[in-house]
Structure formats: C-alpha cells, structure tokens
Amino acid sequence: MPNLAIVRRLEAVGFRAWPAASIQYDGSWQIRLTAGHPSKRLNSVNPLDPSDHDDIEGRVERAARRFGSYDRPLVFRQSPLAPPPLEAYLDALGWRRFDETIVMTGAIESLDIDHGMDHLPMRDVGRYVDASIAVHGREQSLKPGLTEVLSAIRPPSGLFVLEEETTGPVSTALCVHDNDLAGLFELATRADKRRSGYGRDVVTAALRWARHRGAETAWLQVESANTAAVALYKGLGFGEVYRYAYRQKPGY
C-alpha cells in the first residue's frame, strides 16, 4: 500500500503543474475540465479521499452532466486516493480501466544525470509548443489549448527542446520546479529518432536545471505499457511510488 501522504502531495503538485481551466469540487472529488485541450488529466474526475463515498450514483450522474456541458465523455482518474466503493460501483457497471500510469520519484542527488550536454530551457512558449506538437505527432489544432495550459502554470518551469540542424526538433520535455520537487511532463522523442539517446539527454538536462534551482526530488508519470520509457527511468534511478488508471463507461 503506497504512503497516502506522499500520494496526496504528488497529486497536488501534479495539478499545479498541469492546470485545468475549470476546477470544481463535489465533496473531495475534484472535477477538472478544459475546453481547449483533450488531455485526460485536464478532463477527469479525481477522487482525493478514500473515505468519501456517499451517494456515489448521484455524484457520478452530476459529474456526467458537467462533462456533457463541455461535450466531453465522463472519465474518472483513479489513484490510491479513490474510495474502494467507487471502484466497485464502476466495476459493477462494466466501466473499462485503461492507460495505467506509474508515478515514479528519485532523489536528484542519487540520479544518474551527469552525462550528456547541457541545454538551456527556451523562453518562447510558442516555439516550444510547435516543437512538442511535431515531436508527439499531434494535430496542429491543439496549439491554442496547449499554449493556454503552459501559460497557466504558476511554478517556475523549464521548456526543453533538443533539435537536429537538418531535421528540426527531436525530443522535448517540460520540467516544473515546485519547492523541493521537480516534475517532468510532456516527455517525448520523435518516432524516427527513438533509441538514439535523445530521451535520456533531454531528461538529464532538465533535471540538472532543476538541481541548479535547488530541487531535491524528481518525479514523473509514465504509462506502464511504455516499457522502453519505464526502463530508461529505472536506469536513471527512479523508483515506483504508486499507480493510477482511467475509467470510462463501455462504448467510449
């Protein structure tokens, strides 16, 4: 069983690092919605207290109406903070579980990050967004929404892009420095450049930047199915703290 105090802290810094446009609460269920970006983390119900499970059916119905007003399918993001009766309720209705994600941490002084070239973060949000969209292979229509999300981040953040002179951006990362914690987000390497060391280089450059700023612990989220990335982070010295997954009703 993971340490729930640590889970609560990482969940809180994760919400600050990837801010939703609209945040509402139904008890301790945080309802996050963002019209301009389809990210599940920005459009999901996040239960934050294992003991808060009164009137589950009514609260799920209210959440569905809120998501409907945004033209979004209802999605629950279930971490160890989700109440077990809610899990059982969704199981009984046949809601599928998908995109299991591992949350990992590592003491920065112990991580293997002192190799590779130093790269300074860029200040141009628009240029970073263009690079991130290209590296992830996403639709250009996401640019306004991603720009809005990045511009809303309040803790200091570093935008990292590795580029080749002839082919353009090959790897990107967002590093958010929140007190003693450094969170890594939007990590990606272009499909034709994977397994060439770029992912490791962008991660280590971002973490050296965070260490210079005084961060002591690094953390990140990676889908459990991404075995290459999980192996990379374990090789750097990260360890698993907890997992979460998304739930959605059948047919979506």
Rank of each mutant, 00 (worst) to 15 (best):
G27A: 04
L42F: 03
A88I: 13
S69P: 08
G27D: 06
G36E: 13
L42C: 04
K40P: 03
R77V: 00
E57M: 12
G27R: 05
L90W: 07
L74G: 02
P73W: 03
D54H: 15
P85G: 12
G58A: 14
K40S: 10
A35S: 12
G27T: 03
F76S: 01
G36N: 11
R96G: 12
P38R: 04
G58Y: 10
S110I: 00
M104Q: 14
M104S: 11
S51F: 11
T101D: 05
A92Y: 08
M104L: 13
I102A: 13
I31L: 08
D49G: 10
A92R: 15
V75R: 11
S39D: 11
D54Q: 14
V45D: 07
P80I: 01
S69Q: 15
P84Q: 10
S79L: 01
V45K: 05
P80N: 02
G36V: 05
Y25N: 07
D49V: 04
G27V: 04
A92D: 15
L48F: 10
A82Y: 05
R66F: 12
Y89Q: 02
H37M: 13
L86Q: 10
L48N: 15
D55Y: 07
D26W: 09
S110A: 07
M104Y: 01
N46L: 10
I108E: 00
G94N: 08
H37E: 12
P50C: 00
S51D: 14
L90Y: 09
A35T: 04
W95S: 09
P47C: 03
V45Q: 06
H53R: 07
P80T: 02
D55H: 13
S79R: 04
L33S: 13
E61V: 15
Q30E: 02
R77E: 08
E87I: 09
P38T: 00
R65L: 15
Q30P: 00
R59A: 11
P85V: 10
S44F: 05
L48T: 15
V45P: 06
I56K: 12
V60F: 11
S51R: 12
Y70I: 03
D52V: 13
A64C: 10
R96T: 12
M104P: 07
P73T: 11
G68K: 09
H37S: 13
R41A: 00
R41C: 02
R72S: 00
R66C: 06
R59D: 07
D52C: 11
V75D: 04
A107D: 09
H53A: 15
R77Q: 08
R97E: 14
D91H: 14
P73H: 08
Q30N: 00
P73I: 04
L90G: 05
R96V: 10
A63M: 08
R62S: 13
R62I: 05
Y89W: 13
G94D: 03
A35F: 04
L33Q: 14
D99T: 00
A63S: 15
W29Y: 11
R66Q: 14
L42D: 01
S28R: 09
S44R: 08
A82P: 06
T101Y: 05
G36F: 03
S79G: 00
A107G: 02
R62F: 07
F98K: 01
L81S: 03
